[in-house]
């Protein structure tokens, strides 16, 4: 029963891996397949593997996948255009042929009576596995330990980056910055923080320059790549709203002079938290 519930889910999730465009989604679908597999292991009288499947595969390996994905860019989505001519068609044709032949071949086989693991698992599955693992398979076990150590070392070696040039110190960095300024006119000072002089102080809101335009460099590149940066024109209404409120609050102030004075003479009440509330209210309206 469990099988017939889990099998369609697993096949559907597996097929999903083929079609989703984002790697994260593929990883999640793979997790579904693996957890389902764990349950199937439990059904198949393999409680130890059930645990290992959950802990090692779903827990460790998949997390590793997600971790690497994070390092190299979660947002990177596969293009759907196939670059190698005929690759996709041939892959599907060969895959279908392979699957069909395998399934047909297996269905031709008569497996006979299932012996079952009741006898083997008599003293518990884990002690039984331990018995075999540390007797008959002890060499293989030791070999896998060596393999794991090697793999760990290998991963360290691969991930390690040798520094080829001396690390630039503060003096060098400062000199470089001055040089860039002299040659390209690159802004010398610190970058503006997101949300400065803006309606929002969220990271996706660019800072406003004194002339009212948005400073694109104040927002993370990743957000810019995702297209989730909120532009200054989109915030224009909010800004006007704030000006109106401020004008209403103080009555006599020149709205255009407000930003300049807000730092010194600005009312303590005009905190950004307040502004947020106002905006929320506006949105609600």
């Amino acid at each position: 029963m469990t099988f017939w519930i889990l099998a369609p889910i697993m096949v559907a999730a597996a097929l999903g891996i083929l079609f989703v465009r984002k790697a994260v989604h593929a990883a999640l679908l793979l997790a579904v397949v693996m957890i389902s597999l764990a349950f199937l292991y439990a059904v198949l009288d393999a409680p130890f593997l059930f645990a290992v499947q959950i802990i090692v595969y779903t827990g460790a390996i998949l997390m590793l996948f997600l971790f690497v994905m994070m390092l190299i860019g979660v947002d990177a989505a596969d293009s759907v255009v196939e670059t190698i001519r005929g690759q996709r068609v041939m892959a599907v044709v060969l895959g279908l042929a392979f699957g069909t032949v395998l399934v047909l071949g297996i269905s031709q086989v008569t497996f006979g009576v299932v012996v079952g693991l009741d006898e083997a698992n008599a003293g518990g599955n884990v002690p039984a596995i331990a018995n075999i693992l540390f007797s008959r398979y002890v060499f293989a076990f030791e070999a896998t330990s060596a393999l794991l150590i090697t793999a760990a070392l290998g991963a360290m070696v691969l991930a390690h980056r040798e520094r080829l040039t001396p690390k630039a110190g503060q003096a060098e960095l400062a000199a470089q910055r001055m040089r860039d300024y002299a040659e390209h006119g690159k802004h010398l000072g610190p970058l503006p923080s997101p949300g400065v002089y803006a309606r929002h102080n969220a990271v996706d809101t660019p800072a406003l320059l004194p002339d009212g335009t948005a400073a694109e460099s104040s927002v993370s590149r990743v957000l810019a790549a995702r297209g989730t940066v909120r532009s200054a024109p989109a915030l224009a209404d909010d800004i006007d709203d704030v000006r109106r409120q401020l004008a209403g609050l103080e009555g006599h102030s020149d709205p255009a002079a407000m930003p300049e004075t807000s730092g010194k003479a600005g009312a303590p009440a005009s905190t950004e938290e307040d502004v947020d509330k106002h905006v929320d209210k506006d949105v609600d309206k």
Partner: peptide, 14 residues
């Protein structure tokens, strides 16, 4: 077998 084949096709197409 089905899961294996799907894996194969995935390797080939992704």
């Amino acid at each position: 077998a089905i899961l294996f084949t799907i894996g194969c096709v995935g390797v080939l197409t992704r």
